[in-house]
Amino acid sequence: MSLNREDVVKIAHLARLAIDEQSVPEYARNLSSILDFVATMEQVDTHAIAPMAHPLDLAQRLRADAVTEEVDRETCQAIAPQVEAGLYLVPKVIE
């Protein structure tokens, strides 16, 4: 399976990655070869095998519904670039 130029640009945009124009063909080549590598597995007959959702064959453990976390807002916000009135401030986003 090979990815074309548009595929790469779209994937980069969805992942919010800035890639420079000249590297697009190289990314396309590298990503395609990863897909080809994975596609090798398609040669194996997996009809009778249930798909796994996780590499560990275990079930999710559950926790009791209880409040166990005390939030220290000051510490959490110490690494934030900008806060005000207890809110994290970010560049304006509006739809």
Binding site: E84, L89, V93, I94
Partner: peptide, 10 residues
């Protein structure tokens, strides 16, 4: 009200 920024409450 956040001088051109957006405030986030999580």
């Amino acid at each position: 009200d956040f001088h051109g920024m957006t405030g986030i409450d999580l």
